[in-house]
Structures are given as C-alpha cells and as structure tokens.
Design a protein around this nucleic acid. Structure first.
Ligand SMILES: [Zn+2]
Ligand SMILES: [Zn+2]
Ligand SMILES: [Zn+2]
Ligand SMILES: [Zn+2]
Lengths: 132, 132
DNA sequence: TAACGTTTGTTATAATATAACATATTTAAG
DNA sequence: CTTAAATATGTTATATTATAACAAACGTTA
C-alpha cells in the first residue's frame, strides 16, 4: 500500500517543504531551502523528487518545471493528473473531478494505443486575477 | 488569417526542419542541424520557436522539452493541444478528436476559473511497441 | 553475517533556456 | 518619400534545469 510506504530522511524533508508551500516549488528553490538541513547537492533533491513522484506524493507541473504536493489521495500513484494554472499569479491547483478523470481514463484514439498515464494542464485566469 | 502569416527567414528554416522530422525535435538538436544555414546561437532558435508556437505552426511537448509540427490546422493558434506519447519508442502523435476537444474546451472546475488554453499528454505504448 | 536493494554523499558536467545589448529589416503612418 | 514603430537578427554571456559517474552507508531479510 502506498500509505504504509516509509520515506527516507531526505524524502521526508523534501516532501515536507513541498507540502507546506502555497506555490509550486522549483528544484533549485527547494535545494536552497533545505541547505540548512544538510542537503547540499542538486542530485539529492532530484532523487527525492523522483521517488516522491513515483509514490504519487507529489506531481511535476511539466510546463513550469515545478513540483506540487498531491491533493488527491496520491492520484493512483501519479497516473492521472490534471491542473489548472493561473497565467497571472502562477497559482496551480490540482483538479480532482471524477467525470473528467473517468472520461480521460477511458479515452482511446483511433491508433489503438494503450494509455497508462495522462497529464492535463489548463491555463487561464483564476477568479481573483479575473477581478483585478 | 493564420495561413497568410508570412514567416521570416529563420522562422522558415526552423519550421521546415521540424515539419520534416519524424520525431519531436529538441532545441539544441535543431540548432545543430541549422548551423550550416547560418543560425549559430541558441537564442536564434528559441526566438523562432516562440513565434512558431504563437502562430500555432508548432507545439512544445512539455514533458519532453521537444517540438513538433502541428498536424491539425494550426490548433486554433495553439490553444488546445493533445498528444499521445509512446514511452518506449518516444513517438509523439498529435491527437485530433472533436469530442475530446469539445469536452475539454467546455470543462469548468468548481473554482470558477476561466480557461483559455489546455495541453493534454497521454503516455503509453504505441501499437508497434505493444507487439514487441 | 552476508547479500541485496535502496539511499546518501560528492564532484563534475550536460542540457535547456534567457538576459542584455547592438543592429538591421519590415510595416504603417504622416 | 520619410520617419517612427514594430519585428527580426546577431552576438556574447549567463542562468536554470537535470543527469553521469563513482564511492560509501544503510536497512532489510535470508
Ligand atoms: Zn494528485
Ligand atoms: Zn491568478
Ligand atoms: Zn496542433
Ligand atoms: Zn512505440
């Protein structure tokens, strides 16, 4: 079970900082923030990120090269992700919508390709940026 | 009209090489390939790519940092894109499916955010990689 | 305790992308 | 035409993102 997975020291440190952040975090900004905790090199960060992604604890927002904590029961181990991204304030929200995920999981194109995973990113204006 | 848009010299060179490629191309591989035509610096490539994306002539495959020619009437100037990506052979195919794009264009989340654009990437196995 | 897989630490380097500045070319008014 | 604005180019330097390669430590479990 993913829930019982025990994280290593570095993985915990890095998950913690991502979970506390209100914004998606970039790898090197994570690095800067954990240097006081003894993590000194990019690889230490990237390795933890890679593992956390595999476990579904975090996701990479591909178009931003940034990382967010999963808000959605670990997203079936990161196989089906959707985000809304405000182009003004850069806020990223994970979308959890049953109909949408069902629709996409069942989607097949005419080539007969088998999909194991998808990532969807919507870009636009969040409500507060719309007002101003 | 997008069709009447006239491209500059560098833009033509770079669109041409992307259109002829069977694979998504990376920026520095494009650079390498156009050096004989006088384009010497990364910025010259990135600037052309940026413009071609705006015009909907090409798309960036975000999870791959690679660029493909649009196969779909310039995709309403790149506002609605979907790809299927084979994780084995790395082949990328642009999906053009009316139902899917209609569904996504009309999608609204509960926050009331306005979407101007989306990008969807499916990952899996293409038919020929499935066989082998 | 030995063997295996996983995690860590470390240095170096690769790959991707942009800043800043100078010049040239094209377009659209006046 | 002529000038101004917008767009495109050329160039050097640098920023940002990510991985390679190697060695050591740790945590299982047989
Ligand atoms: Zn999630
Ligand atoms: Zn916003
Ligand atoms: Zn397209
Ligand atoms: Zn394939």
């Amino acid at each position: 079970m993913a829930q019982t997975q025990t994280l290593s020291k570095n993985q915990k440190i890095i998950l913690d900082i991502i979970e506390k952040a209100k914004e998606p975090l970039k790898a090197y900004s994570i690095l800067f923030n954990v240097q006081k905790k003894g993590i000194k090199a990019p690889l230490q960060v990237y390795r933890a990120l890679e593992k956390l992604i595999k476990l579904g604890k975090i996701h990479k927002v591909e178009s931003r090269n940034a990382f967010v904590a999963c808000k959605n029961s670990n997203c079936e181990i990161s196989k089906a992700t959707a985000f809304s991204i405000c182009e003004t304030c850069k806020k990223v929200t994970e979308i959890s919508n049953q109909k949408l995920s069902k629709y996409l999981k069942n989607f097949h194109d005419k080539t007969g390709m088998t999909y194991k995973k998808y990532n969807l990113e919507f870009y636009g204006l969040c409500t507060s940026c719309k007002r101003s």
